[in-house]
Computed example of a mutant assay.
Amino acid sequence: MAIESEHRGSDSPYVARVWRGRTTGAGVMTSIATSTSELVFWEDHGVVHAAVRGPETVPTSVPIEAGSDSFGITFAHGASLSHLSAAALVDSGAAAEHVAGRRFVLAGEEWEIPGFDDAEQLVQKLVRSGVLTRDPLVDDVVWGGAARVGTRSVQRRVAASTGLTVGAIRQIERARGAAALLREGVQIPEVVHRLGFYDQAHLARALQRFIGRTATQLRRGGAEDVLSLLYKTDQQARP
């Protein structure tokens, strides 16, 4: 099985990434851990589906049908849907009702499914309606910024918008960054140094816990080893 995919960044503070993909054969994909939620759409045998997926704290195996098209809007840390509990979405999701054509229901309202190039138009509408909100503090502290409020307040606000702790988010993102570097062929000691792991054993435990692969497997790669969307953020890309 192979997945043809592409993704892009966004100027919207509510969006981390926009992606789309198509499978060229049936098989099993490893959905690796992620600390963000997303709004995802897919078409399977002519039927359109829509759902909100929450953060995933462990890798899971996902069966994939041949010829399935998918499209997603990955929200930035701190962006959340006001009608859904962030905690309840962790390692879970919520299906959205499909109305007809390219329309779906979210928070009791009908919305048009956007395209890959104009996903931000839907995001803007969700923000204006109050369905999508954002706590800017969360994204700042996740990437090491200093907060002007107490530690307990930070943890409460991060948990309220993501369902996770700051520590869990940073662990997941560091493991994803390491996996991306290893897939690019970066040597293991360099990954350990660049991302601040204690040693190679620490890196190995993080990869097994959040990615479901060893460093050697990631470096070897191969068309048969299919992982969910893997990319480096701007923060992870810095040496």
Rank of each mutant, 00 (worst) to 15 (best):
H83L: 01
V52E: 06
T74M: 15
S82K: 03
G78Q: 08
V58W: 10
G54C: 06
G54N: 02
A76Q: 10
V58I: 09
T60A: 14
V48R: 14
V47I: 13
S85C: 01
V47N: 06
A88F: 00
R53L: 15
P63C: 05
A66Q: 13
G46F: 10
S80A: 14
S61R: 15
A50E: 01
A87W: 00
S85G: 01
R53Y: 15
S80K: 03
T57E: 06
H49E: 02
E56C: 08
E56W: 09
H77V: 05
P59Q: 09
G78E: 05
A87H: 04
G54I: 11
H83Y: 09
A51N: 07
S70V: 12
P59Y: 08
L81I: 15
A86H: 03
V58Y: 12
D44W: 04
A88K: 07
A50W: 03
A79F: 08
I64C: 12
A50F: 05
V62W: 06
E56H: 13
A51H: 05
V47A: 12
S61P: 07
E56D: 09
P55G: 03
E56A: 14
I64D: 07
V47G: 00
F75C: 02
T57N: 08
P59L: 07
F71W: 09
T57M: 09
V58C: 07
H45M: 10
H77Y: 15
F75V: 02
G46S: 08
V58P: 00
T60P: 01
H49I: 03
L84M: 08
P59I: 10
V58M: 12
P59M: 09
G54S: 05
S80R: 11
H49V: 06
P55Y: 08
A51I: 06
H83Q: 09
